[in-house]
Computed example of a mutant assay.
Amino acid sequence: MVKRRINLLQVFVVLMHEMRNQFVSYTYWSIIVWPLLIMAIFERFENFKMNTISLSTSEICRLWGNILPIFIFMVCLSYVSIIANSVAMDKTSKLSELLMVMVDAKEQLVGKILSIYGLLIFQIAVYIGVFNLYGGLTGSRFLNELLSQTPSQLLVYVVLDAIVAILISLIWTTEIASNISDEAQVATAVIPVMLIIGTGTIIAMFFNSPEYFDSGLSAIRVYINVILAFPPIGSLLFPTLLAEGNVTYWEAFLNLGLELFIMAFIFRTSVRQYRRGMLSREYSNPFYQALEKGNTEKK
């Protein structure tokens, strides 16, 4: 059987459609504005002022180990609900059958997920623009100095790790949301994913301790590396292990590669379930419905 190539034009059309809808959405702009408001409030406190930061490489790594899981959680908290609402609107507006005729499930999924990354990049660009415009802001100075003192390989890992963790969250959310029969069920599609991300973020704090592993090869080290190959567990816990020097960079990048490999299989299953879910009119808990379809698929 010849695999059908993905239609990049359809993916681009879906991507632009989703981004255009969000650019006129109050929810999306509130996601952009509220961190700026919080930063402006902190700027009013003299005790929050700081001129420079001078940290060692190990302290910089430890700082990223604390920041990255929280950043992933905050991004997922904001954007998982956006993609869930988008899928729910397509499903409940009775356009799902028409969409499936015009654009296949794979193109819809890829377009929707890429649109989230596009929205996130735009949000970051807005913050960079604000920081450059008001260079005297404490947050601006702190971020610039933090980035300048961070080793390049760590910066590469931080970016890739965030992309991978957010990706699996979006895939699972679209899969569950495709089984929604009522827009009131959107929270049911978001809560399971956020529970996983939130739990991983909390557990990451326990991993943020020096000498978690003994030096060299050990049974617990092999066990943890195998377990952390499953997304998004590794993406949330590996940064803290790397921050404390418990794992090496080659282990961290190998973990990301294994997560992406596993996600490729998860995505193929999600495309089939997304297609079935969008065409189904059954009314039940979308989370349980997605699990039932997954079990039926395996049988």
Rank of each mutant, 00 (worst) to 15 (best):
N7V: 00
A125N: 02
R5A: 10
A165N: 07
Y157L: 05
I32P: 05
G135Y: 15
L133E: 00
V158W: 02
M278W: 02
V126E: 00
F12V: 11
S54Y: 09
G257Y: 13
T57R: 13
F73V: 08
S152G: 01
K106V: 06
L109S: 05
S56F: 00
E175A: 04
M89A: 04
I197A: 14
F142C: 03
V14R: 09
S115H: 05
M100G: 12
Y127T: 04
E292P: 00
G294H: 07
S78Q: 12
L279T: 02
I166V: 12
S56H: 01
L77F: 13
I266P: 02
L99S: 04
L114G: 04
L236M: 15
F42L: 15
I124A: 06
T296G: 03
P239W: 06
F131N: 07
G277R: 03
G294C: 01
N7L: 04
N225V: 03
C61D: 14
N285C: 06
Q123T: 11
Q108R: 14
L228S: 03
N295Y: 14
L241E: 10
I124F: 11
L119G: 09
N132Y: 07
A189V: 04
N285D: 15
E97W: 13
P232I: 12
W29A: 00
S30E: 10
A165Q: 15
S169A: 07
P232R: 14
G245E: 03
L68C: 00
V226G: 05
L146I: 09
S148M: 14
D182W: 01
L98S: 08
L279C: 03
Y283Q: 14
T240R: 10
T173D: 10
Y28S: 03
F12M: 12
V190D: 04
N295Q: 13
R221G: 02
N295G: 00
P192V: 06
K94F: 08
I82T: 03
I262H: 02
I220G: 01
I203F: 11
I171P: 05
R4L: 15
L242S: 10
P210W: 08
I196T: 05
L133R: 06
Y274E: 05
S270V: 04
G111C: 07
S148N: 10
L95K: 15
N246E: 14
K112A: 03
M19Q: 03
V75P: 08
M102P: 00
V110T: 11
T248L: 12
A162P: 02
L37N: 03
L15W: 13
S284E: 13
V164Q: 03
M89C: 02
E259D: 11
F12R: 10
V2C: 01
M194C: 05
I113G: 07
I113Y: 05
G257H: 13
I41K: 00
E59M: 09
D90Q: 10
Q22H: 15
E145R: 06
A165L: 14
V247H: 08
V222K: 01
S115R: 02
E59S: 07
W172F: 11
L99V: 03
Q22V: 03
G294N: 13
M205L: 10
V222Q: 03
P286G: 01
E97F: 12
N7D: 15
Y288C: 04
Y79T: 06
G111V: 02
S96Q: 05
V33H: 01
